[in-house]
Design a protein around this nucleic acid. Structure first.
Lengths: 252, 252
DNA sequence: TTACCGATGTTCTAAATTATTCGTTTTTGT
DNA sequence: ACAAAAACGAATAATTTAGAACATCGGTAA
């Protein structure tokens, strides 16, 4: 195994576990401690990880928050959903992306696209997509919530209203049995509504954990969307309603 | 099998597996390692794959931008400077941070502080600092430059003018012998100036590579700052000027 | 046919990577 | 605080890989 590859794997492992001892890495890769030290030192020089005695951990910029753990939940499902959503977004189109871990996974999947124009109030999405020089990334201004990297508030809503884009990609906290979309956060709902108003197509992405979850604030109804991407078939009644309102259902 | 055909197959295999050793390819195609190397080098020249020792892998979609390399240059010096700047920022104070890799290092060093209130037009700084729940991070809105994660423009300047904070931390591209601060980017300069106007203390951080570098746009003069943090003692004349204007000089 | 051209194989030296050894520093247990 | 154990970094040796130079092969066009 080459050095580059091993360092990549180490980086992934560190991001996953938060901390690794040299012994663990020696056992994992079957090389000498000295080799691991060289790797870790090189990576620390690049700021990829933080070097400690006996091992290495995350560079302090990426601390493990509640948000980080939420991000790993249902990751496989989210990735499948994200792949599917990305397939339905053509190159060179314009889109909104709002807050939510599912949306961030979608942003990741969109990295292979070309020339996208993206308006977002999600700091993580902006950071991810702005790495692509051919993308236009526009971020809303305001106070950043540490909880999820979201930017919310009146000003953000006005900001969204400046645009009229092809696609709006929104995430939610819960879906009621009758298709009512629910969220925990009042401000976030206002922004999602603004996005729905100003998008030609509205794509909703939600994994099965959102079914029947009780959140407080009403956002709208599933029937207002153009397409619904999920990983588990919804209840029969809801499926029929979607069909009636010509909402495309994509079960991934 | 022709060269073109083999290279095509290699490309497919790399995309499939993510990484291939030369040995694997030698076995797969029954040719000598030298032939494989020639193939890989040619393909790497075209940017199709990324060459490593012992094999080749995917060309990372996140291209190694000029920004990425700039970020590693003088990293050790930048870290020392950042530590020193951080020591001069008290907990619970408010500050501006603008664009630049040095500023990002400073943001990193500020992660150990408490209750900071930060206004920035630097996406990376915002992402880093927003991980801390007790920080208030406010980001300017607008188009994100992929080059450096900066948000610039008229609106950003107005945004800065909304605030009056304790500290302004600015970076620059060059310092002339007489202390003139220079930058390559006109828009960036406007924002730095706005920050200087609206900060009670202005901290300038610049490593030695900035001395005598010729950038085009005039930002201001070192004497307008409250303190100057660097890693190498400036020329005698400049040192005296700083002393005359009561600018604190910190050589780290 | 014959000279030429590109691709491949062969050989050899330089460079990169890894393992090993050893003295020094840091951590840990008492 | 002290000593043992663990970990570190530097130096060096061993191994692997890279790259250049040249020979060979097969096809092509004059």
């Amino acid at each position: 195994m080459s050095q580059a590859l091993r360092q990549n794997r180490i980086h992934q492992l560190v991001k996953q576990k938060g901390y690794l001892t040299i012994d663990e890495l020696v056992a994992h890769f079957s090389v000498t401690p000295q080799t691991i030290r060289r790797d870790l030192n090189q990576m620390a020089d690049q700021g990829l990880i933080e070097r400690h005695h006996g091992g290495a951990g995350l560079a302090s910029s990426v601390e493990n928050t509640a948000y980080q753990t939420r991000k790993i939940q249902h990751l496989a499902e989210k990735k499948r959903i994200a792949e599917q959503v990305a397939r339905h977004i053509p190159d060179h189109s314009s889109l909104f992306i709002n807050i939510g871990t599912t949306n961030e996974t979608i942003a990741q999947a969109l990295l292979d696209h070309r020339g996208l124009k993206v308006v977002t109030n999600n700091l993580h999405v902006a950071a991810m997509l702005s790495a692509r020089p051919d993308f236009t990334v526009i971020i809303a201004g305001g106070e950043v919530r540490s909880r999820d990297g979201g930017i919310v508030g009146e000003a953000t809503r006005d900001f969204v209203h400046q645009f009229k884009l092809d696609y709006g990609i929104i995430g939610i906290s819960g879906i009621d049995e009758d298709g009512t979309l629910l969220d925990f956060d009042y401000q976030e709902v206002r922004i999602a509504q603004a996005i729905m108003e100003n998008s030609r197509y509205v794509y909703l992405a939600a994994d099965h954990s959102k079914y029947g979850r009780n959140a407080m604030v009403r956002l709208g109804n599933l029937t207002q969307c153009s397409a619904f991407f999920t990983d588990a078939r919804p209840a029969q009644a809801l499926t029929e309603r979607l069909h009636q309102h010509q909402v495309d259902l994509h079960v991934c």
